[in-house]
Write a protein that binds this DNA or RNA. Structure first.
Lengths: 344, 344
DNA sequence: GGTGCTTCTGTGAGCGTTCACAGTAGAGAA
DNA sequence: TTCTCTACTGTGAACGCTCACAGAAGCACC
């Protein structure tokens, strides 16, 4: 008596009208109950809820959207090349976090992957047409043309990680990159390491720049002589980390520690180090960044800087919804945490 | 003059009415042009298209859905535990393939991850309410209750990999698991290996069972004595592969080859073998299955059986759309291919 | 007994499409 | 000519919901 009718076939679903009739009230009252229940008497409230349960009514989102002008859905836009999407589990963590945070608001997530030029156009058109209320943007190189277009069109947008350029025009949620880097390098110093190499992130992104800045600051503060040969640029890919570590090893054979700007690159670095016969952490201590699933995939398990992924995704959703609700863009910086494992 | 107006703010978008007025025709005619263009004169066709370009008109999908009863969107349902989703790049490949195939039909993909019990209920409700036209289902253990519920509710559904039970009641697209396994084991035999271990997939799934069957068949055909101690059950996880290989090594120290039912498990097996001091492929040849991005992530690069991921995803989409269009469920089996790399 | 609140309820209009239907025009056949 | 058929076009009427508005009922205050 409390369950909805399990109609085997494909029958016309109940409408708000059916519920109203069942509950002995008007459509308006049912609608009010559906949308927060203000200005409706407890008795009516109760009757409507009972009727909803009895009929198995579910709101028709299309009809609602048609009148409200909202779609009550958001896009998750990925502008990375697909190889990155395939190898970096961070995307999955973020994706999972966002679906979960959105589910709490009953908002579906539309996945959009902008790989080809054709897709970029299609997606851009789709979004600016108002088919989604807002966009969660993920791209490391975030001077993205699609993003720029959306921003100009006034589409609510929140990026993961600080985007290039525009100060306050676009919302973003990011971990405290500089502080995290400082923590890791301090940790390496505390282990007694002095020849600390670094494989950076892409230096055309604020995140990559910040992590490098943190590294430099700590070394300077500690009075360790700066050596630019210890710094090698990376691209957040496994292969990049492997190549970076190999390069570093050839430059500085007596390297005793390595700070790598992402766990995935750190995995690559581990491969290169082991191939070169270095023991980790005995000969070379390795510190990663992200605390992505990749951190524990290889061996030894990576000591790393945790980005609070679940908070990042939930904040992205919160900020996006706020912006859809009319608030101004805002930036959220979240604290990181040193996670000690085996590699350092 | 050919571009749409770049309105900086948020202004009311043009409707079919505006297009009709601009083109000097009626709404009906515009609608006909939009939906295939039958029964409309070349002149009108042309005028309408020009008007669409000029006004920057994009159809309001909500209004359309309200009347057609279709949502013109499909769900991508993942019922795996989230750790699997985080570590196995196959999901990403599939996700990318499906978004791409759907984009060609202008159909957005809604990502649904059924982790918690609460999510299962919500998702099930969402889908059966008709908010999506059909579902692309991904779950290795596909005796899933959500899936079963959807099937009963008559929701168009196509699974990736053969689901448990029901013969022809549910569509699926899968690689030829048995044949692929046969190819790999034949290859290992051709390398002169005779003590060939196997780490299986989950044996409560048809895929896992088939790959094991292929292995058994080839060995029997070749007259190699069957030894059940050579077979260890796995779960498609990296850790499972690592544990499986370790177990196998302790049982059969003179193992000279290993067929692992997934690339991810094979990566784990590689770790275990290297830790035990075995050289790959010299001491132990390793063959994987999937040709997932994981195959080339470690070293040595895995010799594996390629599942044709892009065809799998495009076929899933094709079959789903056919079923949404009223056709009966169907099964598609796609051929695999041996990919020789370094590990065997 | 009016006047002004606040709380609650019903009603009509309309969101932007598609669909069924009713037409119109022109071509060819009777 | 007239009739029929085909190709095309326009016109209400929905689709299921929300929103603005009008009103009713209850209560307090003068």
């Amino acid at each position: 008596m409390t369950m909805s009718h399990q109609t085997g076939g494909r029958r016309k679903p109940p409408t708000i009208h059916d519920v109203a009739r069942e509950a002995g009230v008007s459509r308006g009252t049912v609608s009010r109950v559906l949308n927060g229940g203000h200005y409706v008497s407890p008795a009516a409230q109760e009757a409507v809820n009972a009727a909803i349960r009895k009929t198995g009514y579910v709101v028709n989102r299309h009809a609602r959207s048609l009148i409200t002008g909202r779609s009550d859905s958001v896009g998750f836009l990925l502008t990375e090349p697909q190889e990155k999407f395939f190898e970096d589990p961070n995307f999955n963590v973020l994706l999972r976090g966002c679906t979960q945070a959105l589910a709490a608001h009953d908002i579906p997530l539309l996945l959009m992957i902008a790989g080809t030029e054709d897709e970029r156009r299609r997606i851009s058109r789709y979004i600016t047409a108002g088919h989604v209320d807002g966009v969660l943007l993920v791209s490391s190189h975030s001077g993205d043309p699609v993003a720029e277009q959306l921003r100009e069109a006034g589409v609510p947008l929140v990026a993961c990680g600080k985007p290039i350029g525009q100060g306050s025009k676009v919302s973003y949620v990011a971990a405290d990159d500089r502080d995290g880097a400082r923590d890791m390098v301090s940790h390496l110093l505390s282990l007694g390491r002095r020849r600390i190499g670094m494989i950076t992130g892409p230096l055309d992104t604020p995140g990559g720049v910040e992590r490098l800045a943190g590294y430099r600051e700590v070394l300077a503060d500690a009075g360790v002589e700066a050596d630019e040969r210890l710094i090698v640029p990376g691209d957040y890919s496994r292969a990049g980390g492997e190549a970076g570590a190999a390069e570093l090893l050839s430059r500085i054979p007596d390297l005793d520690a390595l700070f790598v700007a992402s766990d995935l690159m750190a995995q690559g670095a581990l491969t290169a180090l082991q191939r070169a016969g270095r023991r980790v952490p005995e000969d070379v201590a390795v510190g990663g960044f992200d605390d992505s699933p990749a951190a524990t995939a290889g061996s030894p398990a990576l000591t790393t800087i945790r980005q609070p992924w679940d908070r990042i995704s939930s904040e992205m959703v919160r900020v996006l919804l706020a912006q859809i609700g009319g608030e101004d863009p805002s930036a959220v910086i979240l604290p990181t945490e040193l996670v000690k494992r085996e590699s350092a």
